[in-house]
Design a protein around this nucleic acid. Structure first.
Lengths: 348, 348
DNA sequence: GCCCTCTATGTAAACGATTACATATTTGGG
DNA sequence: CCCAAATATGTAATCGTTTACATAGAGGGC
């Protein structure tokens, strides 16, 4: 491997000068600049980032700790992070970690000397556990919050989004509205449940425990929850699933049970994954700007890094948007004319 | 930050001994071992991986270069890679790169000193461009092959999978079978097209250029391709989409046009994404073991690394499997009894 | 008691860059 | 023509590890 010394020798210059040329730091004559650039290019010299980061104590790398995430969410959040990181000259070191405190600590520790900061996504961790992460480098919490105010955090406007969707169901006439919940330990799921209940209470509708079914964000969970719901003596007329995957499982179960959507049962989801509009009927959902979520998390992290982790902590939420399609009935279907269809779909 | 020197001073030992204890190398007395472990633990010492990799010239990190990938594929391939990497004590440095030769070269170069090897996924790049990647570290090509035999590569059994699916459509009686293609520059897409044609030829069916429609792997492309196909004077009776996303777009278009699937039109996809079984009707597809794809790519890369890139190059393909559901008709629907449903769904 | 072989530990040289400081050369003002 | 300032380049310390080599003491065979 060719090092800076090799280049220096070949160009008959000192390593210092070579370094200066390569980094554009310090004064160098135009002549030397050209000579060294030429030699370095010819020898295909590439600086060794490990060595560089040892002396500068900057790695230009961001760690990302993720739980087991499936589908579009994972891809899109990473896309947002990578776009933002690259634009700022950073790389992404991605690692999946067990969601318990020990797993996270180990993973964060392994980042020492590898990353300048870490985005930790751990929606299933309870707030206390995250209180004192043993980290000297900046940390941003994604989709969870710590109890204290020690860590920057970024979350989805879960509660508001759920409240609006349930509010919409109520506004088109539903009174018996079921929810398929996510895991009780999951922050997003808990917040969405809170929004559901809040909305019902606001409309003066009594909460019915029978209408709150367990789920775990998988299609299979949505499927079996529906089987239970339609077996009830007093069936709901609408179902709000805490995410789209479960809503899709729900649609599938309703279809097989011969229950018409939205006529006999309205269905709504959360996330607005790209496939939602291709369901039958197209699925109403709460749109989550996932790319922005990743992008913003990295921005927060970079801010922490430039301020050497000595900055007022922030707590932000990205806002959601109601997307009403046919599965909730009551409102004209979203069906753009064919000629404009392609562009619109791609842009969403 | 606490360094190995701090630990040495605190334990009144030399850095060499501390290093020996921490790495379990060289002889140390049981007493010193305990003392140093205790001190290091108490001081929360974590070795600086940058410094370590500088001297050992091992980073314990694998680079991953990906194009713009969407949905389940992206998540799942990374999951497979990360699982395998972690099991071998490696980390993943993930970067999205422009798919042109220059972008890839730059990205690979940026990996120097950061990664011990790189997995490059670049299905849209032509074979020649990949011929001489300027890399001293091992490279594995994913979903593409280089013309020479200079680089390890791993691909999907695209051609065989497509051939089998089209063969199945033929076996249930179809003669006019359309294909919605992927981008012509995409390796997977080209191979799937080849399998489609091969299968038709084997059955003595004339190829009809009108039945080969352009696509780009998006739902929108599938949607509009179907609108064109059903406008033909001599409609096909079956549609093979080169991936599931386009098949889903196709289903949506057929539904809106009031064409019954599979009675009036059979539809098949490729990839077998988890959602395929939740479509209406459940979508027949060619199953691709995505996790295994990622896992195997990392295994190949690790092999190259341990052999210092001086090993016979391999060219492997992961095998696909036909999954027939209702959208192609002709065969009993896959609908497991409710009680076993959940387990089965999750495991797929 | 001598020498040889272990075992346990320390010393110091790498690894490949950056950069403070020193030195040499040029430039220009008076 | 001299000296200060500016410019260009070099020398060497440094970052935090690993590890080859050196050293010192302990144990054992003769």
């Amino acid at each position: 491997m060719v090092t800076i010394k090799d280049v220096a020798r070949e160009a008959k210059m000192s390593v210092a000068t070579v370094s200066r040329v390569l980094n554009g730091s310090g004064p160098v004559s135009e002549e030397t600049r050209r000579l060294i650039s030429e030699v370095a290019g010819r020898m295909r010299y590439v600086p060794h980032s490990g060595a560089r980061s040892l002396i500068t104590s900057k790695t230009q790398t961001l760690g990302v700790l993720l739980p087991d995430l499936y589908g579009e969410f994972f891809s899109e959040v990473i896309r947002g992070m990578d776009d933002t990181a690259q634009r700022n000259g950073f790389h992404l070191l991605i690692s999946r970690a067990y969601a318990d405190r020990h797993g996270i600590e180990t993973a964060i520790r392994a980042m020492r000397g590898r990353a300048d900061g870490v985005v930790v996504m751990s929606p299933d961790l309870d707030a206390e556990s995250l209180l004192n992460l043993p980290s000297t480098i900046p940390v941003v919490l994604l989709c969870s919050v710590s109890r204290g105010n020690e860590i920057d955090s970024l979350t989805i406007q879960n509660c508001r989004g759920a409240r609006e969707m349930v509010g919409h169901l109520i506004s088109v006439g539903h009174r018996r509205i079921a929810i398929i919940k996510g895991s009780p330990r999951n922050y997003d799921a808990a917040e969405r449940l809170r929004g559901y209940r809040m909305s019902l209470r606001e409309a003066g509708i009594m909460l019915d425990p029978l209408l709150e079914r367990e789920g775990d964000f998988t299609e299979a969970a949505g499927y079996s929850a529906v089987l239970e719901l339609i077996a009830l003596k007093n069936r709901p007329t609408a179902i709000f699933a805490a995410n789209d995957s479960m809503a899709i499982g729900a649609l599938s179960a309703l279809r097989e049970s011969g229950i018409a959507v939205p006529e006999e049962m309205a269905v709504a989801g959360f996330d607005d994954i790209p496939l939602a509009r291709y369901m039958d009927p197209p699925l109403s959902s709460v749109h989550v700007p996932i790319w922005e979520l990743g992008a913003r998390a990295v921005e927060l992290l970079l801010h922490g890094i430039t301020h050497k982790n000595d900055h007022p902590r922030r707590r932000e939420r990205v806002s959601t948007k109601l997307v009403i399609r046919r599965s909730t009935g009551g409102v004209p279907a979203e069906r753009p004319p064919p000629q404009t269809l392609k562009r619109k779909l791609v842009s969403v």
